[in-house]
C-alpha cells in the first residue's frame, strides 16, 4: 500500500514536472519563468536538508492540528447530533463559521494568538475540521435503530453508548474521512505558515515566492508530496489495524477469549 501511494505521487509529480519542462523548452522560456533541470538540481542540493526539516516541522504541526480537528469535530458532532435547540444552534454555528474563508479569519487568529505555533495549529485544524464535522454529525445524528432499540427499550442507553454504537457501525466511513482530511491538515498548516508563521515549509515557500524561485518551490512540493503520502499511508494502516482489532474478520484474539482486546488491554464492554 505504501508503495502504491508513493508510486502514485511520483507519477503525478513527474508528469507535472515534465509538462512544466515541456512548456519551458517549447516556448524557450528562461529559468526565471520555469527553472531548468540544472537549476532544479542546484536548488535541491542547496535547500534539500533545510526543506526536509521544514517539511517535518510542518508535518508535525499538521498531525497535531489534525488530531485537534478530529477532537473538535468529535465534540461538536456529539453535541450537535441532538435534535434539540442547542444541537441545531451548534450545527448552524459550525456551518456558518466554516463559510468564512480562512484568509479572512486568519488575521483575527494572528491578532489573538500571534504568529507562532498556536495560530499554525488552529488554522490547520480549521481547514480540515469541516469535512470531519460533516461526517461526524452525519454519523452521530443517524440512529442505528436495529442496535439501539434494545438499549433504549431496556433503559440502558446513555450518550457514550449511543456514540459508541454509531461510531462503530460507521467505522469505515470515519476512518476514510479522517484519512482524507489529513491532506487538508497538511494544506492548512502550509497555508498558515505561508500567511503568518516564521517556520515550516509554508514559510520557506513564501520566501521562495518572494524570490521568484520556482525551483525551490518544486523541491518543496516534492517533499510535501512524499511526506503527505507517508502520513496518509500511516493513517490508513492505523485505521485498518483498529478495524481488525475491534471487528476481526474471522474471530481474532479478542473473539477467542470472548472479550474486547485493544493494544493488549482488555476493554470492558461499555454496555
Amino acid at each position: 500500500m505504501l508503495h502504491r501511494r508513493l508510486y502514485q505521487f511520483l507519477l503525478v509529480y513527474t508528469l507535472g514536472l515534465g509538462l512544466l519542462l515541456s512548456f519551458k523548452y517549447l516556448l524557450d522560456l528562461s529559468d526565471y519563468v520555469i527553472p531548468g533541470v540544472q537549476d532544479i538540481r542546484k536548488a535541491a542540493t542547496s535547500v534539500f536538508f533545510r526543506y526536509l526539516m521544514d517539511t517535518l516541522d510542518t508535518l508535525s504541526v499538521a498531525v497535531v492540528g489534525h488530531l485537534i480537528a478530529i477532537l473538535m469535530a468529535g465534540i461538536v458532532g456529539i453535541i450537535g447530533r441532538s435534535a434539540s435547540w442547542s444541537g441545531a444552534f451548534i450545527r448552524a454555528a459550525a456551518y456558518n463559521i466554516q463559510a468564512y474563508p480562512i484568509v479572512a479569519v486568519a488575521p483575527i487568529i494572528f491578532i489573538l494568538f500571534g504568529d507562532g505555533m498556536v495560530s499554525r495549529l488552529l488554522i490547520a485544524a480549521m481547514i480540515c475540521y469541516f469535512p470531519l464535522l460533516l461526517s461526524f454529525i452525519g454519523v452521530f445524528a443517524e440512529p442505528v435503530t436495529d442496535i439501539e432499540h434494545f438499549y433504549t427499550a431496556t433503559g440502558r442507553m446513555n450518550w457514550r453508548l449511543q456514540i459508541g454504537i454509531r461510531a462503530f457501525e460507521n467505522m469505515a466511513k470515519l476512518t476514510t474521512v479522517i484519512t482524507g482530511s489529513a491532506t487538508l491538515a497538511m494544506v492548512g498548516t502550509i497555508v498558515a505558515e505561508f500567511i503568518a508563521a516564521t517556520a515550516g515549509i509554508g514559510h520557506s515557500i513564501r520566501i521562495a515566492l518572494y524570490q521568484s524561485d520556482l525551483s525551490k518551490i518544486l523541491v518543496a512540493l516534492f517533499l510535501i508530496g512524499i511526506f503527505n503520502s507517508l502520513y496518509l499511508f500511516l493513517l490508513e494502516w492505523i485505521g485498518k489495524r483498529i478495524r481488525v482489532r475491534l471487528d476481526p474478520p474471522t474471530g481474532g484474539r479478542g473473539a477467542r477469549r470472548g472479550r474486547l482486546i485493544l493494544k493488549g488491554k482488555e476493554i470492558r464492554n461499555p454496555i
Binding site: 528562461s30 529559468d31 526565471y32 519563468v33 527553472p35 524570490q211 521568484s212 524561485d213
Partner: peptide
C-alpha cells in the same frame, strides 16, 4: 531585485 534575479536566470528582460 526582481530584474536582477531574472537576469541571473537568463531572462531577456
Amino acid at each position: 531585485d526582481m530584474v536582477i534575479r531574472a537576469v541571473s536566470k537568463g531572462s531577456p528582460v
